[in-house]
């Protein structure tokens, strides 16, 4: 019973291939301006990793901002439901999910059955999203993935007065001109990001277990800052958090095929 999920996000496209409860393969690629093409490329990569062909897929669910443009899916589900489904599939004790994607962030609260009780999204501003970190990493001359690791070397993290991406850039440039260490800057950026997202997360009511999904969850600096902000540990899940939406979509596909 091969089920597939494809998540066409604003920055990256992801695909997951599932055989019952076993993850057979997954893939990720930068989203192009053509969602159909991005989806086709990434599902092909995931199938290759799983040593399968397209004809082996019994059911495929699409999600993400480009979901309605994916040609090969039989059903679309919102990314909010998919992240919830993916997290519940991996860890049924999860009750709160904080998903930080490329251009938005969401807080989702679940009940014991994995049903969504409440959700909230931020979408009008880039300050609580992966885009904010991307801009800041570029400014510091770091790769995005280095922003988390370098922040662990910080001795005196800066306190960013503004989380507005535009104003924060000016502030970071000023600190760079003052020869402040990149570690202190990176830590301050991660903390500012966490503080911003924590406001959103609190509004759905934090209930343990809490986990993070989306690409930003791979940034250990943000993860730890979020734990500090919310005062709860973040459950580390066994799958790349960036794949959560695609995984949830694949779980929905599996259910469509009669799997539980």
């Amino acid at each position: 019973m091969i089920a597939a999920g494809c998540d066409v996000g604003s920055l990256t496209t992801k695909a997951v291939i599932l055989n019952n409860t076993r993850l057979l393969g997954h893939a990720i690629a930068r989203s192009s301006i053509n969602p159909e093409k991005s989806a086709a490329e990434v599902i092909e990569k995931a199938l290759k990793a799983a040593r399968l062909t397209f004809d082996d897929i019994g059911f495929c669910v699409g999600t993400g901002y480009g979901r309605e443009r994916i040609e090969f899916v039989k059903k679309t589900v919102s990314e909010i439901s998919c992240h919830a489904k993916g997290a519940h599939f991996l860890q049924p004790s999860v009750r709160t999910i904080i998903d930080i994607g490329g251009q938005d962030c969401k807080a989702i609260r679940l009940d014991a059955k994995g049903e969504i009780v409440k959700f909230i999204t931020n979408d009008k501003c880039a300050s609580g999203t992966g885009r904010f970190l991307e801009v800041m990493a570029k400014l510091l001359g770091l790769k995005l993935e280095e922003l988390g690791s370098i922040s662990s070397q910080a001795t005196r993290p800066i306190n960013l007065a503004s989380t507005c991406t535009v104003w924060a850039q000016a502030e970071v440039i000023m600190h760079l001109n003052e020869d402040m260490s990149r570690a202190d800057l990176a830590a301050g950026i991660n903390e500012a990001m966490a503080a911003r997202v924590a406001i959103l997360a609190r509004s759905v009511g934090i209930e343990k277990d809490v986990c993070m999904s989306g690409g930003v969850a791979k940034n250990t600096g943000v993860l730890e800052a979020m734990e500090k902000q919310l005062g709860v540990p973040m459950r580390r899940l066994r799958v790349d958090p960036q794949m959560m939406g695609a995984l949830g979509a694949a779980v929905f596909a599996r259910e469509k095929m009669g799997g539980k």
Binding site: Y65, E68, T76, V77, S78, E79, I80, S81, D104, E115, I116, V117, F119, T121, D123
Partner: peptide, 13 residues
Amino acid sequence: GQLRTRVQAFIES
């Protein structure tokens, strides 16, 4: 796009 996602998720929820 965001509006569609929220409404879809709301109906799903």
